[in-house]
Design a protein around this nucleic acid. Structure first.
Length: 357
DNA sequence: CCCATTTGACCAAT
DNA sequence: ATTGGTCAAATGGG
């Protein structure tokens, strides 16, 4: 299956990614040394931002002749770490095989898009874990893995119930390098259409959910708004926690709510990020922030990329667009009862709201 | 009291 | 039977 990208485009992308990876490695090295001047960090960050933007622009313009029916074709993958031994092509083949099998026999297995990312954590900077990738996760399990030194943690989206968001992730600490975490994402977030959470109560205190509820379009959203509030609370908390980091150097600060299940503490969003949010109808992705591995792929082709900047896409179910856009206001229950959420993959990547300019 | 995490049990896939 | 993944009761924090 061809994804529509020309060879030149692919090459261009890979070159950009490579440059970005190198820049990130450089930054890691610099951040290790205490003697790195502040300006170096900032320069590197700006360098990375430039890469981000370039990649974004490239992808927004899309592959040549690509039909944009699927909306955004790809997000820029996040936080590529080292290029070390990433089994890119193997994974690609694997994904391809899976996909073929999936097409041939409609296996009723729940195969969600899955990709892994690696996050390195500066252990001494008070950062406790790789966990803040911009989404609200709820831990639901932990398991000792055979042959692994550290247990694996299982997280699901906080909004699984209320918004039928089936994104999950697994966090596995690396054996040899305890500062390295491998995070496997499964499924994508569909929780952002929590609509009217835009009014960011600048006071995170327990405002009455009921009041907001009247603002909410539906009746069954009571619990939802409650969770939203808690998310907002989390946002604020995290935002303050992370202030110590290098993130301070970043010119853009986000209104700390607004994005569904997204947390917005990744303050080094670039302008392109803002554009994203707008284009995607409030469905931002924490692109590329080195601290935010959550890099959602939104691609028309199930396996457009196999190894994109350190993010290994393992396989991806073909995207089924269940278009509950803002027009449909009660999509959750509908999906809940009429469709198997897993099989249908209620993810609605983006119905290309952004492409009509 | 509410909510998130912990943790052993359970289940499903090899 | 073993292992990875999820559930859900218990626990603990705010």
């Amino acid at each position: 299956m061809e994804n529509g990208w020309s060879w030149e485009q692919k090459t261009l992308i890979s070159e950009l990614i490579q440059g970005m990876e190198l820049a990130k490695q450089l930054r890691v090295q610099f951040s290790g040394t205490s003697s790195s001047p502040e300006s170096t960090d900032m320069l590197l960050q700006r360098l990375l931002n430039s890469y981000e933007k370039a990649l974004l622009i490239l992808r927004w313009s899309g592959p040549v002749g690509q039909s944009h029916t699927m909306g955004v074709t790809a997000g820029v993958p996040g936080s590529p770490i080292s290029v070390n031994g990433s089994p890119g092509s193997d994974e690609f083949e694997k994904g391809l095989k899976d996909q073929q099998e999936l097409n041939d026999v409609s296996k009723k297995r729940k195969i969600l898009p899955r990709w892994t990312d690696q996050v390195r954590v500066n252990s001494e900077t008070g950062l406790e874990g790789p966990h803040d990738d911009g989404y609200s996760w709820r831990k639901y399990g932990q398991k000792d893995i055979l042959g692994a030194k550290y247990p694996r943690s299982y997280y699901r989206c906080t909004f699984r119930i209320t918004q039928n968001c089936w994104a999950t992730k697994q966090v596995q600490r690396s054996d040899e390098d305890p500062n390295l975490f491998e995070i496997t994402y499964r499924g994508r977030h569909t929780c952002s259409h929590a609509t009217n959470l835009v009014p960011a109560p600048s006071s995170p205190e327990k405002q009455e959910q009921k009041h907001n509820n009247s603002n909410n379009n539906n009746d069954n959203q009571q619990k939802q708004s409650l969770e939203i509030l808690s998310t907002i609370r989390n946002n604020l908390r995290v935002a303050t926690e992370n202030l110590d980091n290098r993130e301070m150097a970043h010119p853009f600060s986000f209104p700390s709510t607004s994005f569904g299940c997204m947390k917005s503490e990744n303050s080094h969003f670039s302008l392109s990020e803002l554009d994203n949010s707008a284009l995607l109808g409030g469905f931002p992705q924490p692109f590329l922030s080195q601290a935010s591995p959550e890099s959602n792929y939104f691609m028309a082709s199930p396996f457009q990329v196999s190894n994109f900047g350190g993010v290994h896409l393992q396989h991806s179910e073909s995207e089924i667009i269940s278009a509950h856009t803002s027009a449909t206001n009660s999509p959750i229950l509908d999906i809940d009862f009429s469709l198997d959420p897993v099989e249908i993959d209620p993810n609605f990547p983006f119905d290309t709201p952004g492409f009509f300019s």
